[in-house]
């Protein structure tokens, strides 16, 4: 219940405040969002399998975001920023899809 309220508050805050993304954060935000989505989908899967743990979620969320941002930063420094961020997005996408598939199998048995 509380997470849902957090979700609503976040969306409303984003819509109302409409802050400009700081220039320094701009390359990292999309990747960080994908990484966080991966953590959230993983959490939903764990919730469905009744082994959800707040601590695991918080740690995986933060570490996902930080590592993704760091990889993008590293890629930028190495001059392969776009390729590396593509790689990160692909890997996270695969994880999101596999987690979503697990959830789907549990709900629909298909």
């Amino acid at each position: 219940m509380i997470p849902v309220i957090g979700l609503a508050v976040g969306i409303i805050a984003g819509l109302v405040l409409r802050p400009a993304v700081p220039a320094g954060l701009q390359p990292y935000l999309p990747i960080a969002i994908v990484a966080a989505l991966d953590a959230v989908i993983g959490a939903l899967r764990a919730l469905g399998e009744r082994r959800f743990d707040d601590r695991v979620f918080v740690v995986s969320f933060i570490s996902n975001v930080v590592i993704a941002a760091f990889m993008v930063y590293l890629g930028d420094q190495l001059g392969v920023g776009s390729q590396l961020s593509t790689g990160v997005v692909v890997v996270l996408g695969i994880r999101i899809f596999s987690n979503a598939a697990a959830i789907r199998r549990r709900i629909f048995h298909a």
Binding site: I5, G6, I11, G14, V40, V58
Partner: peptide
């Protein structure tokens, strides 16, 4: 609360992005 804050932050980031 921490989970809610994280999800709120994610929603916020998605929205502004």
């Amino acid at each position: 609360v921490v989970v809610a804050v994280l999800i709120g932050a994610l929603a916020f980031a998605i929205t502004i992005q």
